[in-house]
């Protein structure tokens, strides 16, 4: 059994002056390839922190993070950047597109950073993704000319353009209305199925759990449980203890 993500006994402390904030307290998590994993939990429970560690944009205070077989604690900053470029795609809550580039150029950017594809290959790949996410006609627009949902589609296309094994999405629907959010999750789910890409996304919205292949519930920096979407939904959005305070 290959685990695309393997997190073992991870602790993460943030220090604010002399004050230490324990954001994660002994988290262990294995994710199999092809999963569509939701990380759920109230605000401040450590979702973003966990995703940052998985996404190699941050390092744990203690514990091991293994991504696609790479022991991240042994890797340099440059190597981690390469790992992100080639293995991980990111979808952000506030889309984070480069405002001065067109939609096409935004999607193409990771390929240019990879420096492996020819112009033609890049063009074909970007156009295919534009079709997939349904914003072909906006290829030459600037992000500022698009709606939130359209921007998130651009972000999804950008995340997928390098055919990463793993896509991380931190509350991808939080800035969208519920209909648009549902559409985005539909799109992600479909891409997960067709491209066999592993998705890990965080949410504190119980309604979207049903999309997930399994749901990891976090509270106070610790994993409460890991259940299937059905179990989670059966729990009726009122999962066991501790009871979700937020949302």
């Amino acid at each position: 059994m290959t685990h695309i993500v393997s997190v073992q006994q991870v602790f993460k402390n943030y220090t604010l002056g002399t004050f230490v904030v324990p954001a994660l307290r002994g988290v262990s998590l294995d994710v199999e390839e092809g999963e569509f994993l939701a990380i759920a939990g109230p605000s401040g429970s450590g979702k973003t922190t966990l995703l940052n560690l998985i996404g190699c944009v941050d390092t744990p205070t203690k514990g091991l993070v293994r991504i696609a077989g790479n022991a991240t604690e042994t890797m340099s900053e440059r190597q981690l950047t390469r790992l992100r470029l080639h293995t991980i795609g990111f979808i952000f809550q506030s889309f984070n597109l480069v405002p001065v580039l067109s939609v096409f150029q935004n999607i193409e950017l990771p390929l240019l950073l990879q420096r492996s594809a020819t112009t033609k290959e890049r063009r074909a790949r970007v156009e295919a993704l534009l079709d997939r996410v349904g914003i072909r006609e906006y290829a030459s627009h600037r992000p500022s000319e698009l709606s939130g949902g359209q921007r998130q589609r651009v972000a999804i296309a950008r995340a997928l353009v390098t055919r990463p094994k793993l896509v991380l999405a931190d509350e991808p629907t939080a800035n969208l209305d519920s209909v648009t959010g549902t559409n985005i999750l539909d799109l992600m789910k479909e891409l997960n199925r067709t491209e066999k890409t592993t998705f890990i996304f965080s949410t504190h919205d119980a309604r979207v759990w049903s999309y997930a292949s399994s749901v990891v519930r976090l509270a106070d920096g610790q994993i409460v449980d890991r259940v299937t979407a059905e179990e989670a939904v059966r729990a009726g959005g009122v999962p066991g203890q501790p009871s979700p305070r937020a949302t």
């Binding site: 950047t81 470029l85 480069v98 405002p99 950073l113």
Partner: peptide, 16 residues
């Protein structure tokens, strides 16, 4: 800063 952070996350090296 956010844009630069994004570029870094997406895989741009510092020299870029």
């Amino acid at each position: 800063i956010a844009e630069i952070g994004t570029l870094r996350a997406v895989g741009a090296q510092r020299r870029f």
